[in-house]
Design a protein around this nucleic acid. Structure first.
Lengths: 122, 122
DNA sequence: CGGTATCCCTAACGATACTG
DNA sequence: CAGTATCGTTAGGGATACCG
């Protein structure tokens, strides 16, 4: 047995891990992944309506980068009016549980954290 | 059995979960948590040297918000020159494995993601 | 040593208008 | 319906100088 499980932290400038994680460390991407994880397939406007506060632009941008990273699959049905479906890829699905775990942790620790912030302000 | 395991996604404007996760969705906080997870106790300057590219300001800010959320404990030794130690709290430790899992996932999927980005550019 | 305080700049994001 | 294009704002973060 080694001294540490050591996830091997690469702290380098061009840290390769950060280049990956930063992509869904943004404001909306994790939320989109969670929604697609629950609904399996969603149209653009469905996601749009499910996320109050997001702009059409940011939804487009977020979906595009998720697609670039191969986490989300985009399917266009060439009809009028057009129809575009979004769903998780296997890779996206492999990421999903980790995000869900984070959300779960956040829910479990929310109240305590908020209280910490309060008492810290005094 | 219910239809879904349902991590319960709160998509509301004032989504409480986002208010938590956004705090370490920033540029440096997760990295600091990982380092403290490996080293257990570190002084300010030790962390500073371990993270090339971080500014003194951002290290201060990041540590402060981590402390506010009760994820990191700050201990001041009133001597000259001063000495300040940082370590994970139990709450910080409970978060650590989830971040490590994300890093692990990122490492495992790094190459494939980079390739996805490439082929997508064509 | 371990921070503040200040200034500045860029990237992220939002709002609005337009399009195939 | 599902986007683009353009513009304006703002918050994150870097550089530098100073302090107890």
């Amino acid at each position: 047995m080694e001294k540490s499980k050591s996830v091997k932290i690469d702290v380098d400038e061009n840290c390769p891990v950060r280049g990956i994680l930063d992509r869904f460390g943004d404001k909306w991407s994790t939320l989109i992944l969670l929604l697609l994880g629950e609904s399996s397939v969603l149209r653009f406007n469905e996601i749009y309506k499910m996320i109050p506060g997001i702009s059409q632009k940011m939804l487009t941008v977020s979906l595009k980068t998720l697609e670039e990273d191969g986490l989300v699959k985009r399917t266009v049905y060439p009809q009028i009016p057009p129809r575009v479906d979004y769903e998780l890829t296997p890779r996206g699905m492999s990421l999903l549980p980790h995000i869900q775990n984070l959300v779960k942790w956040a829910n479990e620790n929310r109240l305590n954290i908020l209280q910490s912030r309060e008492t810290h302000r005094l």
